[in-house]
Design a protein around this nucleic acid. Structure first.
Lengths: 308, 308
DNA sequence: TAAAAATACTCCATAGGTATTTTAT
DNA sequence: ATAAAATACCTATGGAGTATTTTTA
């Protein structure tokens, strides 16, 4: 049995006429009769009762017609599903992100996904530092990552989504909360909450180099891994912190954000395997390019808070 | 696309090896590669990622594999369904029956159906007199009927299921309830409940001829169409009635059944269209023949209460 | 280098075409 | 008498076979 048999039988069943069904199928009548006979022979029963004046479905024919129509519809659905997957209109995308991207860029990206790729499923595990995401990408545990460039591992491509200045998070009652234009030197003697040292945090590295370049010495530092905890500790009055501008989207009672000169900028980029054949990734990257690019300044502004 | 493509793809997906899949399909490897490529070309995407060392499913391949397996299974199910219908193991049987067959023969037939043809569905409308069933059979509104022969209309075949004597239903306190061996003559002067006159009721005709042959004159008759009502009226003391022996299965408080000599017998038969091509009918008739025939005396006894 | 898929080509089975016959109303 | 399906026969597409090449781990 072949799908041809099903299609032909369905056509005859619907037209109740071999000649017209054949016409509809763009074949001539004799081969249609032949193929239907063949199907009946294989099934061991007549599906159609023919006289020269009328073609009718037998009981078995009615049952088989129902099933055949369903099978052909299922096949079309399967075809559509494959096509959608192949073109990246559907599928699963495992997304990594740094904690500081959770408040502005991640929601923005998710919103665009929902608008332009509603059938793509995003899978997001917990936040990861840039190097962790790099490893996860290379090891195929992630498909794309929202991370802070530059990436160290080979085989990854990135696309910058935003360049943002570092801003200062201070407790509401703090002396720096009300002061006029701030500079890095104003942090001298302050307790500074920082991301863990080493090569782990790109933001942490930017903060460190800003302090070193200006020769500013803080009283001490507390290392905090997650941005949400860091801001919470600022709210508690434990110290101040330098965070990417987009963290401002996280408003907490008792926390004020202040611009501060000389703190430098950090980038946020989308990263993916350069040899990734997955259509979802390509479609997703392209979609972000289309709707975050310079050709659409309004949405671009939403992410690109300040261009260096 | 043809089913061949689905089968071949499924085989490769399951073996993860073109050579072994080809062997399993009893074809050589090159055409298998060709057909799978063809399928991929039609779907517009790779379903398998091949290297000489490993064959793997792509994302689209996994999705299509699931669908293909389901479709092939559905096709097998459709095939099985048609086969069952074609051989009469399943399907719908519209059954007619006379009221007096409801109490013994109809349950017995239904029980046999349930045992030997569990997938056949019986559709039973309300009870019908023999001529009504004949018409319904000829007009294709019924497939088989439990009726009282002989049938008048041409084109019907019957098979006798039982020959039963008429017995007398009397109110419990009635003078005939306790009397010794009864004969038709004992009905003289009684109020007799009868089935409607005319050619309608075969049992009614048998009663009438028994009375005429013995010259017995009853006081009067009440015509009652349904056996259940007739017995209920006997219980109410309205009169006595001659009913087929199998009606004894209907026990009602206040009613006694008595054998009565000379009342004659009536037959119960299964009737169907002699040109009926329906496999269920053939299977059903055959099943009843096998399990009610003389070769199985025990079950035959259950229906053939008394052979003339 | 060895295992396996892809390619090249050949062949024939059969889907589909044309012409005609059969059949049922 | 006629419309429509079945049959007869022919053609050619393409599925499957054999032999060989290409690929990659």
């Amino acid at each position: 049995m072949e799908l041809r048999h099903l299609k032909y039988f369905v056509a005859v069943a619907e037209h109740r006429h071999f000649g017209r069904a054949a016409e509809h199928l763009h074949i001539s009548q004799p081969p249609l009769s032949q193929q239907v006979r063949q199907l009946e022979r294989e099934l061991g029963t007549e599906l159609l009762s023919r006289t020269t004046r009328r073609v009718d479905l037998t009981e078995a024919g009615r049952a088989f017609y129902t099933d055949a129509v369903a099978i052909l519809a299922d096949l079309d659905a399967a075809r559509a599903r494959v096509r959608a997957l192949a073109q990246g209109w559907s599928g699963l995308l495992r997304v990594g992100f740094t904690g500081s991207a959770s408040y502005r860029q991640l929601p923005q990206v998710a919103r665009l996904k929902q608008t332009y790729l509603p059938d793509v499923e995003l899978q997001m595990s917990s936040e990861m530092l840039t190097p962790t995401q790099e490893r996860a990408l290379v090891e195929q545990r992630l498909d794309v990552g929202l991370l802070r460039p530059p990436v160290q591992m080979p085989g990854l491509t990135t696309r910058t989504l935003a360049v943002e200045p570092l801003v200062l998070a201070v407790p509401a009652g703090h002396r720096l909360a009300g002061a006029a234009a701030l500079g890095i030197a104003d942090l001298a003697g302050e307790v500074l909450l920082t991301y863990p040292g080493g090569a782990g945090s790109v933001v942490g590295g930017a903060v460190e180099s800003a302090l070193r370049q200006t020769g500013t010495r803080v009283a001490r530092t507390h290392e905090v891994e997650q941005t949400s905890s860091m801001v919470a500790l600022v709210a508690a009055g434990l110290g101040v912190a330098l965070v990417p501008d987009s963290v401002r989207a996280l408003t907490l009672e008792g926390v004020r954000y202040r611009e501060i000169a000389g703190a430098g900028t950090v980038e946020l980029a989308l990263a993916w395997r350069e040899d990734d054949a997955s259509p979802v990734v390509a479609r997703f990257v392209r979609m972000l390019g289309d709707h975050l690019g310079p050709s659409r300044p309004k949405e671009a502004d939403a992410l690109t808070t300040a261009v260096a």
